[in-house]
């Protein structure tokens, strides 16, 4: 059966259609979920896409976490359903407390827009389960506030529990421990700054986002 992925749309989101297109190109079903509705319409997985939710006012993700849809996303996460936050979506998930740590302004105040190498640091996540451990994927980043930080105890826990999912081969933003993506304690919530949905065809410069999003579809199928 085809798996349905819900893609959350806040005022100011701007990567939702790319995610929908990417999921459909891989044979999944995708639908948009407006932030003001606390109903996920029975989707098997949720993606919180990139953009500038609520204008990034106050802090990226600070206001988005109070949108009604986030209550439903938190419930899906609590029940073990796969939830992936990409870029601004990662910021939203940290602000909502579904992932630890925070995303700071990039080192040197540098806006980074480039295709970067990502090492698959753990395959025990819904986004990397069908990747080769240690594989290097070429995926674009496009952000100003993507420098991951957390306290020492959290970092120790992330490392000890194999929860750093993706690492930059060459750190573009000053992220702690070269972290590009992490997962939750239950492993089903993943946040990453890079955009796998923008790397789904060689025509786009890379198709290395495919194994990541395919992992998500496969995980959704198992969980249902």
């Amino acid at each position: 059966m085809t798996r349905r992925v819900g893609v959350v749309v806040f005022p100011g989101s701007n990567c939702e259609h790319d995610v929908v297109e990417a999921i459909r190109s891989l044979g999944g079903e995708a639908e948009l979920l407006w932030h003001d509705e606390a109903d996920l319409r029975g989707v098997d997985a949720v993606v919180v896409p990139g953009g500038f939710a609520h204008g990034d006012y106050l802090r990226p993700g600070a206001i988005a976490r109070f949108s009604p849809v986030m209550t439903a996303v938190a419930e899906l996460a609590a029940s073990g359903g796969p939830v992936v936050g990409i870029c601004n979506g990662f910021q939203v998930l940290t602000e909502a407390g579904l992932l630890p740590g925070a995303l700071q302004k990039n080192a040197g105040l540098k806006f980074v827009c480039a295709t970067v190498g990502l090492e698959v640091a753990s395959t025990r996540s819904p986004l990397t389960s069908s990747c080769e451990p240690g594989a290097v994927l070429q995926v674009p980043v496009n952000h100003f506030e993507g420098s991951y930080t957390c306290d020492g105890r959290t970092l120790d826990a992330l490392r000890a529990d194999d929860r750093v999912v993706l690492r930059y081969v060459e750190n573009p933003n000053g992220s702690l421990d070269d972290i590009a993506g992490i997962c939750s304690e239950g492993r089903n919530v993943v946040g990453l700054m890079p955009h796998p949905e923008r790397a789904i065809d060689p025509l786009l410069g890379s198709a290395d986002g495919v194994p990541l999003l395919r992992s998500l579809l496969e995980t959704a199928a198992v969980g249902a």
């Binding site: 700071q104 302004k105 930080t149 000053g174």
Partner: peptide
Amino acid sequence: GISDPEGAT
């Protein structure tokens, strides 16, 4: 202890 790239710049 938290870096402040804006202040540093």
